[in-house]
Amino acid sequence: MSTETPLVQVTDLKKHFPITKGIVIQRQVGTVRAVDGISFSIARGETLGLVGESGCGKTTAGRTLLGLYPSTAGQVDIDGHDLTHARGKSMMEIRRKAQMIFQDPYASLNPRWTVNAIVSEPMRVHHLINNEKDRQERVKELLTLVGLSARLVNRFPHEFSGGQRQRIGIARALASNPRFIVCDEPISALDVSIQAQVVNLLEELQDRLNLTYLFVAHDLSMVRHICDRVAVMYLGIIVEMGERDEVYEHPLHPYTKALLSAVPIPDPRKERARQRVILTGDVPSPINPPSGCRFHPRCPVALEKCKTETPVMKEAAPGHFVECHAVK
């Protein structure tokens, strides 16, 4: 990318959840290594896609990097603020600049609040606009911006459809004029015909407001469409990362190859002619990830050393990083 400093810089971020036992006195009996050392940066105005199967830690990564879960180790820097050490005022500054859009449009809006209360919450909490009337004006502006009628400010979430609710969630995320938004599977709960509407809206908002996105998703087709760069996660680590078309056209990691070959293509002839890399077995548990390369038990090209030696991230092509022994 450019020489400009990236907006978001994540270095060796880890999030482990303790597994405890006991009713009164709790003792730790294990650790879920949900995110186990990931590093990446996102430039201003860029969209980075974070993809992987369920349980790979992508959602946890998104939440940890906004400080919604305290991180176990590592560093997150958002627009010059060090999140891992932020408290009080500096934390609020990060909260204002970094926002989140959620997966479930039914669970992510408080059912007892009006649209006005929901969308104005960030302005109220951050004291951006202290006058109730002006806040409502701004809410109307935001609703219009996301394609909803400004007349709906006093309606309740239950009166809206899934796609409309997602727009309300987007309006709320925009209310504090953030620079960076984590989109956590924002379209996977929506109907096919609505998905394109929301994706187009996100792109339009990015252009207009110069937003930076981390797009967490499992839909690889949509990620190819919306993201500039892609990072593929497997069992808590990033196994491959690079420019969108580079990764999709020349995947290097065997996991990325398998993942891409499994994505269905809406074209009967192409689909029948495809050679699929069918992976055997399921994703292992992140409680005791496999030794060496975490992918080796399912890898079709695993070498002897994959079982013992953990591969290091290397730059196989300019800007294209991969963590695999088989890649030279």
Binding site: M91, R95, F102, Q103, S108, E121, V125, G169, R172
Partner: peptide, 28 residues
Amino acid sequence: ENEFILAARAIGTPTSEIIFLHILPNSI
């Protein structure tokens, strides 16, 4: 555990407001 609580935390809403304005009205 609802996402709207996570949303409130992401916004920076203080804990007292999360308890009294978000959760309590929903357990009414």
